[in-house]
């Protein structure tokens, strides 16, 4: 559904050099720290920037050449002020009705009620949480085949984040061919929601893995200096110096459980993977 093939973009103080794929029917997470290149990647997929090299294909087409009809198949959450400071949710309904042939107005109104979004309040007067909910609601209210969501849960408390993720799960359950790309720096959102994960750092993908693989096969070894000297390094992906010795990320947790019964092996999580991949060596 989406392919970035050696997409390169040079800025004065930042380079993006990325390849990734989002197949139909999958939820893909893009995770990394602030300034790692998540938003630039999303802009590339949405055709908001031109590549210096490489190509980007969405629905087998360059998104810079999308017609308005093509764009109807994509739902987006990106930062900024949506449609204007003084535009209310009620205005948004009227605007979306004219923009999207498949805009589901009853659904939008019902969700506004369920999410306690005031229809008559201008966008500038909404709280950050309300703004985030309205953004997501706009993205999912026109039966898009692809959702591209840049930090959709930013600024939300844990309950509101859970509500939004439930809304997205419900949306995905309606059609198995729908795909989502979601960027976040909140790893718990990605871990519980995505099928696979891209970890981005300084404009490059440093890890691409199925979430199930990370949770099932990855592990963290807690090693003393002596144990660290003796273990098989071949299966260690990254390690970090700690007060007790070394924390090492492995892709073959079971190998160490079977062959080194004396060492501590913790189950892998997205958090530990990110910390060791980005903070380790």
């Amino acid at each position: 559904m989406v392919t970035l093939n050696n997409f390169r973009k040079h800025y004065k103080d930042f380079d993006l050099n990325i390849s990734m794929q989002i197949p139909a029917g999958t939820v893909t997470g893009l995770i990394g720290r602030n300034g790692a290149g998540k938003s630039t990647t999303i802009k590339a997929i949405l055709g908001l920037i031109n590549p210096d090299e490489g190509e980007v294909c969405v629905f087998d087409k360059n998104p810079r050449e999308f017609t308005p009809r093509d764009k109807e198949a994509i739902g987006t959450v990106i930062g900024g002020n949506l449609l204007g400071d003084f535009i209310t949710a009620e205005d948004t309904i009227a605007i979306l009705r004219k923009m999207y042939a498949d805009f589901d107005e009853p659904y939008f109104r019902a969700q506004c009620k369920a999410l306690e979004l005031p229809l008559e309040k201008p966008f500038k007067d909404l709280s950050n949480g309300m703004k985030a909910r309205l953004r997501v609601l706009i993205a999912i209210s026109h039966k898009a085949r692809l959702l591209v969501l840049d930090e959709p849960t930013a600024g939300m408390d844990v309950i509101a984040r859970s509500e939004i993720l439930d809304l997205l799960r419900e949306y995905l359950a309606q059609d198995g061919e729908r795909s989502v790309l979601i960027s976040s720096h909140i790893s718990s959102d990605i871990e519980g929601f995505c099928d696979d994960v891209y970890l981005i750092e300084r404009g490059e993908i440093v890890l691409h893995e199925d979430t199930d693989t990370i949770l099932g096969q990855y592990g963290v070894l807690k090693l003393s200096e002596n144990e660290f000297r003796d273990v098989e390094r071949q299966y260690i992906v990254a390690c970090k110096k700690e007060a007790y010795g070394y924390a090492c990320l492995t892709k073959e947790k079971q190998y160490f459980v079977d062959n080194y019964p004396g060492i501590i092996v913790e189950n892998g999580s997205l958090d530990s993977t990110i910390i060791l991949m980005l903070g380790g060596r």
């Binding site: 908001l48 764009k71 109807e72 987006t76 930062g79 002020n81 204007g84 400071d85």
Partner: peptide, 20 residues
């Protein structure tokens, strides 16, 4: 001028092309 102030980006992800 308002669309530029709001960043254009979101607007241009909606079903709108340069000409329209």
């Amino acid at each position: 001028a308002d669309d530029e102030r709001n960043g254009y980006a979101f607007l241009m992800t909606l079903p709108v092309d340069a000409r329209s």
